[in-house]
Nucleic acid binder design. Structure first.
Length: 221
DNA sequence: ACCCAGGGTCATA
DNA sequence: TATGACCATGGG
């Protein structure tokens, strides 16, 4: 059943979720390249598994492009094994490396306009819309909203418009509310993920909480 | 023993 | 456009 009140806007969600969980200081990485690697490794995978893979890469100094490129393909796959889909993801990381080299590195990419940069990222095999937007927002600090499965579930339960529309439509609808506020876009996605991971009964998160009845489990009627 | 996780690609209809 | 199969590990 849908809430009988109007669905909360994004600023309200930020205030409420932020009061309870935040600030979250995303993305958990030290460099732009590490953000890109993490964005690929976390595809359909729990972050705890990604942390092991990242640690295994750090052990052999493979968290920068040259260091990763120096690894044999088999060793790269072996290092990231804990993150799952390790053969697929090893290929994707190598596509990323080739892309960075062709384009003159991260510094050169940073000169591109956001739309051009997104198009370029989507041209890399293994980088789809969500991964591209993770990279745009958290590695290049561009004003982009990242849509993921948690976002769809939450928005659907809140009765927000476009919850079931295509990726681009949903993304643009949020960006229309938050404008070019990179800090807000950063925090909102992080908070939605953090809240989505909770396995809890619905409870109020803030004063007059608009999603007190919306948690990971079924929405009580 | 199941279900899911901070997706994406490819083949098919 | 829209499903379905596939990729794979680790925690609840």
């Amino acid at each position: 059943m849908e809430p009988d009140t109007a669905p909360p806007d994004c600023r309200t969600l930020l205030r409420c979720l932020g009061a309870y969980y935040g600030p979250l200081h995303w993305w958990p990485a030290e460099t732009a390249f590490e953000v890109m690697v993490g964005a690929i490794l976390t595809q359909n995978t729990a972050w705890t598994n990604v942390e092991r893979a990242i640690a295994a890469l750090r052990e052999v100094d493979a968290l920068h492009p040259a260091g990763m490129a120096a690894l044999a393909p088999e060793e790269l796959a072996e290092r990231i094994r804990p993150s799952g889909y390790f053969n697929v993801k090893a290929d994707r990381l190598r596509h990323l490396l080739a892309f960075l080299q062709e384009r003159g590195g991260i510094e050169a990419l940073a000169n591109l306009e956001t739309g051009a940069l997104r198009t370029a990222l989507l041209g890399v095999k293994g980088i789809g819309p969500e991964t591209a937007d993770d990279i745009l927002l958290y590695a290049f600090h561009r004003p982009v909203f990242v849509v993921d499965a948690y976002t769809r579930r939450l928005f659907e339960r809140l009765g927000r418009p476009h919850a079931r529309d295509g990726y681009e439509t949903l993304r643009v609808s949020v960006e229309a509310e938050l404008g070019t506020d990179v800090a807000a876009l950063n925090e909102l996605h992080a908070l939605i993920v953090e809240h989505g991971k909770q396995r809890c009964r619905p409870r109020p998160l803030c004063d007059g909480c608009p999603l007190a009845r919306v948690c990971r489990g079924a929405v009580p009627e």
